[in-house]
Design a protein around this nucleic acid. Structure first.
Length: 359
DNA sequence: TCTGGGGTCCTACAGCCA
DNA sequence: TCTGTGGCTGTAGGACCC
C-alpha cells in the first residue's frame, strides 16, 4: 500500500492536463471603427497612422474588403492607397480600442481569474478548473462578448498556450477550435513553420534553406541539429514547439521593464538643431511617463535610423536610478554624441530601461 | 520607392576581474 | 610573474510580437 508521502514527485507528464483558452478579436481596430461608422460596412477600410495615406505610416488593420485588394498589415499607407484608391483611410484611435479591450477582458475574467493579457486584442485564460466542456465555455464567452461589444472573436483551446494560440488561428473569423489528442499530427504538422508563434520571416527563410517548410518536417529534425544551427535556447524552442510542448504558465502580472518614445520624421532630417530639439522633446515625454507611473530608470538609450534604414542604438548606464528629465536628456545627448551623423535621419527614439518602482 | 510605434527576449562580444 | 579560463557586466544589435 502506497501512502501519500511515498508518492513519487509529480513529473510534467503526470501533472493534471491543463486547459488553456486563447482569444483573439477579429480584425479588431477595423471592427471597432465599423461599430461607430456603420455606413462603412461592406466597404474597403484601412486603419493606420494618422489616417492620411500621403503621410508616412503603416496599415494596422484592414477590413476583409480592403484585403481583397492586397492590402496587408504592416504595409505602408502609400502602398495601400496605390493598391486600393477607393479605400477609406482612418486614423488609429487607441483610446477607443482600449475601452473595448477592457470590456472583453472583463468578460473573460468572469469565466476564470487566471488571465494573461497579451495586448489590446488578445488574451490567454486558464480554464483548467472551470466546470464544463471546453466548447460550451468558449461558446458562452463568445456570446457574452458579442452581446456586450457587438464584436466577434476567434477562440482556441488546447493543453498549453502555444497550441491554444495556434488553434485560435485555425478558424477565423468567429471561429472556435479545440485541440485534443492526435490533433498535433493531423492539424498542426501540415502547417508551414511560420504558423508557430516565435518563428518569423528570418527563421522561416533559414529553415527553408535547410529544406524545412512544415511544422511536421521541423519535428523530424533532431534537437541537437537545431541547436547547432540556431543556438541552444532557440534550437530547443524550435524542437519543443514543433512537438506541441510548452509548459509556460500564464503570466498574470508583470512590471514594466522599459519605456520609450520614438518618431519618424515626415521628411528625413539633416539639420542638427532639429535633431537636437526632437531628442529633447522625446526625453521629456519619456521622463513624464516615468513620473506618471512612479518609476525610475537605471539606463537611458537612443535609437537613430538613417534614411537608408540602417539603425543604430547607444545606451548608457546611469550612476543612480532617476526619472528626472534633465538627467535623461543629458544621457540621451551623450549617447547621440557617440553616433556619427553622416546621413539624413529618418527616425529618432529615446528609451529608459532597467526600470524599478519608487518606494 | 517603400518600410510605425511600443514592447520583450536572446545572442554576441568586449572589458574587467578572480 | 605570466597565461589561460571562465564568470559577470555593459553594450549593440537582431528577431519577434501586437
Amino acid at each position: 500500500m502506497t501512502g501519500l508521502f511515498d508518492a513519487e514527485p509529480v513529473r510534467a507528464q503526470d501533472a493534471p492536463r491543463r486547459r488553456i483558452l486563447h482569444l483573439d478579436m477579429d480584425a479588431f481596430f477595423a471592427a471597432v471603427e465599423l461599430l461607430r461608422r456603420p455606413e462603412l460596412r461592406g466597404k474597403p477600410v484601412v486603419i493606420g497612422g494618422s489616417g492620411d495615406p500621403t503621410r508616412r505610416g503603416v496599415v494596422s488593420t484592414a477590413t476583409y474588403e480592403a484585403r481583397a485588394f492586397g492590402v496587408r498589415s504592416g504595409m505602408p499607407l502609400r502602398t495601400a492607397a496605390k493598391l486600393c484608391p477607393a479605400c477609406v483611410f482612418l486614423p488609429v484611435d487607441f483610446a477607443e480600442y482600449r475601452r473595448y479591450s477592457a470590456i472583453f477582458k472583463q468578460a473573460m475574467r468572469a469565466v476564470s481569474p487566471v488571465l494573461e493579457d497579451r495586448g489590446i486584442d488578445e488574451a490567454f485564460l486558464d480554464i483548467t478548473d472551470v466546470r464544463g466542456e471546453p466548447e460550451e465555455i468558449a461558446a458562452s464567452l463568445k456570446e457574452r462578448i458579442l452581446a456586450e461589444t457587438g464584436l466577434t472573436c476567434s477562440i482556441g483551446i488546447a493543453p498549453n498556450k502555444l497550441l491554444a494560440k495556434m488553434a485560435s488561428e485555425l478558424d477565423k473569423p468567429d471561429g472556435l477550435t479545440v485541440l485534443g489528442p492526435g490533433d498535433l499530427e493531423r492539424r498542426i504538422w501540415p502547417l508551414g513553420v511560420r504558423k508557430v508563434p516565435g518563428i518569423g520571416p528570418k527563421t522561416e527563410a533559414r529553415l527553408a534553406a535547410l529544406g524545412i517548410r512544415t511544422i511536421g518536417e521541423l519535428a523530424a529534425v533532431p534537437m541537437e541539429r537545431l541547436q547547432a544551427a540556431f543556438g541552444r535556447a532557440y534550437g530547443r524552442f524550435l524542437h519543443e514547439a514543433s512537438h506541441g510542448i510548452d509548459e509556460e504558465p500564464l503570466v498574470t502580472h508583470w512590471e514594466p521593464k522599459q519605456r520609450s518614445r520614438e518618431t519618424t520624421f515626415q521628411e528625413d532630417v539633416g539639420d542638427r538643431s532639429e535633431i537636437a530639439r526632437t531628442l529633447a522633446a522625446l526625453a521629456r515625454e519619456v521622463a513624464a511617463e516615468l513620473a506618471e507611473e512612479g518609476c525610475v530608470a537605471r539606463s537611458v538609450g537612443i535609437k537613430v535610423r538613417f534614411a537608408d534604414f540602417e539603425t543604430h542604438t547607444r545606451e548608457k548606464k546611469l550612476a543612480a536610478p532617476t526619472a528626472a528629465e534633465a538627467e535623461i536628456r543629458k544621457a540621451a545627448f551623450e549617447c547621440l554624441g557617440r553616433i556619427r551623423l553622416d546621413r539624413r535621419v529618418r527616425l529618432l527614439g529615446v528609451r529608459a530601461g532597467d526600470l524599478s518602482r519608487i518606494g
